[in-house]
Amino acid sequence: MKRALFCIVVFAFPVFLSAQDHSSQQGTIIRMRMTDCMGPQHGFMAAMSGASKVESGALCPEYVLAGEKVVYIISGKTSDQLIPLAEITRFRLQKNEMLIRIDDASKESHFHIKAMVLRP
C-alpha cells in the first residue's frame, strides 16, 4: 500500500509541476506611473461594477503589463510595491489578483488588476 502511494506521489509530482508552469505567464511592463492607491476592497470586479473610488492620498505604482494575449493594467497595494522593470516579468493570476514573484522574495507580491484588454 505504501509502495503504491509512493509511486502515485512520484508520478503525480511532475504532472503537478507542469500544471503550475502552465498557469505561469510572462509579459513585459511597457508603462508605469504613480496613481492614487486603491482601497482594500477595490479590485477588478469592483472597478467593473462601478463602485465608488476611495482615495487615501497615497500614491501607488500602476503598471501596464503586456502579456502574450492580454494587456493588463495592475496597481500595487502600497507605495513601495515596485516591480523590477526587467524585459520579462513572470506572473500568474489568482482570485482576481496578479501574483508576481519579485527577485528572490519568498512570497509572491499581490497586485490589483484594474483592467484587462485583449491584444489585437
Binding site: M32, L82, P84, L85, A86, D103
Partner: peptide, 9 residues
C-alpha cells in the same frame, strides 16, 4: 522622468 531598477530593487 524616473529611473528604476530592472533586477535589484
Amino acid at each position: 522622468v524616473r529611473i528604476l531598477p530592472t533586477h535589484n530593487l
